[in-house]
Amino acid sequence: MSQAMPSAQTLPQRADGKERRVLVEVTDLKKHFPIRSGILIQREVAAVKAVDGVSFQIFQGETLGLVGESGCGKSTTGRTILQLYRPTSGSVKFEGQEISTLKGEELRKMRRKMQMVFQDPYASLNPRMSVGRIVAEPLVVHNIGNRKERDERVAELLELVGLNPYFVNRYPHEFSGGQRQRIGLARSLALNPSFIVADEPISALDVSIQAQVVNLLQRLQNELGLTYLFIAHDLSMVRHLCDRVAVMYLGKIVEIAESEELYTNPLHPYTQALLSAVPVPDPVVEERRQRIILKGDVPSPINPPKGCNFNTRCPVAVDVCYDQDPELVEVLPDHWVACHRVI
């Protein structure tokens, strides 16, 4: 387990001096989906660069928010970290262990420690399985306990997420969206994971239910010491829930900082534009809110622009932006930005 040895790099000091332990470390992660063409013999003609060189760390016990507009690669990042998609290149380390090269049984063991909560509560539960079977599935797959023990564990999990344990024999179609999301959460908690990727877990729910699920996520984090990667596009919910926030644009992270820092002092022009779109629940402030309207559309991830990915829409782009891809650099303590104009 030499990989698991803590190094100076995996034990960064927080701004306030408190020690943090890195749980997940992603380095230069790339996921390209090939586009093939041809009738029988298919050649790769292009690739969708869904995730194109992403690096960040997730610390034990924190919630990292991942925001960005549709199609920027947020979900792909989450799924590639969990090895649901195998990365094209780059490394994903979990508790110091490289998992992007794991296969078969080793990967299966690793999956116990990291789980996923899905966006669509209607698609994420098998309609032909009872709630009891759905929640018990991870236990069955990993051959944990006998039937009776599993039943007990399922009842315990349902209670944990706020559902009546008597629901075990019901089928998903008998539940509301919020209840289904709780069932999905119970399933992902069955194996006692330490890390959960929540892929827009609340965007398919209506607002009153969103609050319930978010509170449940927070309570579970406190009780079970979970670490979240929270993928979302609801910026105010991210601000409420997350310790740190990473902003993605076209397969790359453009800015990553502590939540309050990012919202009060956004440095990347894209982050500024994104945050300027958040309505403020105060009519006076809302009146004065300056919206930065970006021109144009997101370029195709098949053929991203040369230089900075954002240069086609950036209001402050200069020559260097069309030539060189900016590195993600720490401009303020714990505040990383990838922009030539910020340094």
Binding site: L84, R111, M116, F118, E137, P138, A190
Partner: peptide
Amino acid sequence: EAARAVGA
């Protein structure tokens, strides 16, 4: 995908 995520 959820089944894959638990290692089925």
